[in-house]
Amino acid sequence: MTYEKIMRIAPIRKPLRLLSLIIILLRTWIMVPFRFRTLFKGFVTQEIQGRCAGSMGGVVWYVLTPLSNLCMYIFIFSVVFQIRMKPIETGTDSFVVYLLTGLFPWLAFSEAALNAPGLVVAKANLITKVLFPTEVLPIASVIVTYLINSIGFILFLAFLLFNGYGHLMWLWFPVVVGLQMVFSLGFVIWISSLCVFIRDIQQFIGIVMQIWFYLTPILFPLTMVPERYRLILTINPMYPFIELYHMILLQHQISWFLFGYAAVVAIFLFVTSIIFFDHVKTSFADVL
């Protein structure tokens, strides 16, 4: 079986140099979805259909939940607080446009993160009984989450384009999304493999994601935050991503500092996560 061949390369017995380990792991993670495309496709369709199987509403729930949240935010911030954006700072005077630009990417990340604890644990039965590349689990989950969330975002982009927000700078947008997916994947790999050993993460992650949401400038621009608290918000690793979306889509500019920040965060998290995953995956079957 081809998987066993890869496995033979992957577990490093002798302490190889860290760099070659990382290269081998990167190659494994990039190859897995292609080499096991049948299995990968199977997991992707299982994720998509499995999420709505059994419920009558199906995909409708995936639109309704964010939509209800959206209406609530608009009511509170636009109607009650009457927040107006300063076009010089944010590139738009509409709160809704500002909110949605950051909210859609956040939702994709947060949904992926909330699904992460169950990824490996829920497949306990499979992992202990069948030999297959566990790497496909986080990859499939992240890709499916981003696919589902892209529906709303594409509609929103069309709306922006129609209202004259379009610009050549938008070409940077898919690059940032790609980086954010790498970041999410790293995060999901960490959480899903840690959760095998520490089940409490499952309960913990909900609280973390909620606090994290309010610490990220999605509902408000960073300029509204008092000067002395701004540092806390900028340390937040999701901050560069959200801020980049605002800049690229609305202000049509890019900050190389933020881009570098995002890239370093994404790559660091991903690389550490695959090293950790490789280190613990052989004991999944023993612990589960």
């Binding site: 299982q46 259909q49 499995g50 199987a53 059994g54 039965n125 499979l126 202990t128 009984k129 069948v130």
Partner: peptide, 12 residues
């Protein structure tokens, strides 16, 4: 075949 039907998705 360590366990029959491990990996079956009941809804499919």
């Amino acid at each position: 075949l360590l366990e029959l039907g491990s990996g079956f998705h009941p809804d499919f």
